[in-house]
Computed example of a mutant assay.
Amino acid sequence: MRFKAQIHNIHTFTKLTASLNSLGPLAWLKLSDEQVCFTIIPEQGTQVWAVLSIDTIFDTYAVQSAANNVINLEVPLGPLNRALKSALNATSAQIRLTKKDNIPLLALTIATTSSNNAYSAFPTSGSRDDDTMFDAQSGGSRETVITQEVPVRVLAPDTVSGLHEPQTREPDVHIILPPLMQLKSISDRFTKLALAGARTSSGAAATRTRLDMAANMHGCLRMSIKTDAMSISSVWTDLANPELDPSQVANGDIGIAEHPSTRMKLLGSADGRSEEGWASVRIDGKDWAKVMSVGRLGGRVIACFCHEHALILYVYLPTDGGEDESVLTYYISSYSA
């Protein structure tokens, strides 16, 4: 098998692996001719199924294998992210699948160029070669090439054949979220206040908090937290509820007319005061904060609420052409009351 690619968007790749690493240490990486997929399925917490167009991250790209040109790898996200960070200021970066001592590796080869400013920072005393002295005085530059190696595990097709995205019912509410970093800031503050209040009232340190997230089909989103000591909430209005695409819904226009979100749109109001028409879920505050780290990638986020069952986030990554071609899907289960 063979995989080799030139990385053209190192910043997006680095932010993506950092965000995924917050949810789990290992990812299933699926490389194919059509796309690149990252999947995280932790024992507890949020699942992530990321489907990326090849040109979101890579420039030249080649993958070959006996299994229909598909390669499945188990990748440690921490080491991969640290390797990518070292390439943030690189003039070029290439990644390939290789082996050393019969251990499969993702080898990241990074080329950097140092200007004469770097050389002039050398101490004036001590030994250094004539070439370095010449480069500094003539205003030249020098290229440095380093290779970072990340051990991986090659997965047989049978090993991953049974892995599939979670099955969920049709959402009751779908809404475009405000900027995720804004949501993260507020949810972090809510969580800290709840933990502090629980510690004060019980005398023992609490470890978990539950956030109540709710939305309606009139552009309203509500985040709240309630404990024995406090109850706080924040409400957003004038958000967008995207229209359903008949081609993506079973039975087309008839399916849309019978869709749960269509029925929910007949309930509630745009000011958020009515208690009708809201779909809600209860999620773990710390887990939610980890999910929100994907906000550093930008792009629009559509949240789908399956009332008291699950929250699904679709994070669409912007491309150079302005089209949403890559999507990260987060499956967050709701806790019972």
Rank of each mutant, 00 (worst) to 15 (best):
T200E: 15
A194F: 05
S202M: 03
V150M: 06
S201G: 03
G203D: 06
V150H: 13
M133L: 14
T191H: 13
I146V: 15
T159C: 05
P171T: 06
H174R: 13
S187L: 09
Q148M: 08
A194P: 05
D172M: 03
P178C: 03
E165P: 04
S138N: 14
L193P: 00
L180T: 02
R169A: 08
G140V: 04
A194G: 03
A136V: 07
G203S: 05
L183T: 04
I146K: 12
A136H: 06
L193Y: 09
A198M: 13
E143Y: 00
Q148A: 11
R169V: 06
E149P: 03
V154C: 08
E170H: 00
Q148W: 03
M133N: 13
P151E: 11
L177I: 05
A196M: 01
M181T: 10
S202K: 01
A204Y: 12
I146C: 04
D131H: 12
H174Y: 02
V173A: 04
G197W: 04
F190T: 03
E170F: 04
M133Q: 13
T159D: 12
S202D: 00
S202R: 06
F190H: 09
S138V: 11
T132S: 12
D131Y: 13
Q167A: 07
M181S: 10
P171S: 07
P166V: 01
L183K: 02
I186Y: 06
A198T: 07
T191Q: 11
R199S: 08
G203F: 04
P166E: 09
A205L: 07
S185F: 10
L163P: 00
S202E: 03
A194M: 05
D188Q: 11
Q137L: 14
T200I: 01
T159N: 06
G162K: 11
T144Q: 14
D158P: 06
A136G: 12
T191R: 14
V154W: 01
I175W: 04
T168I: 13
I176N: 08
R153L: 09
I176M: 13
H164R: 13
T159W: 01
S141A: 12
G140P: 02
L163Y: 09
S202P: 01
S201V: 07
A198G: 06
E149Y: 06
P171D: 10
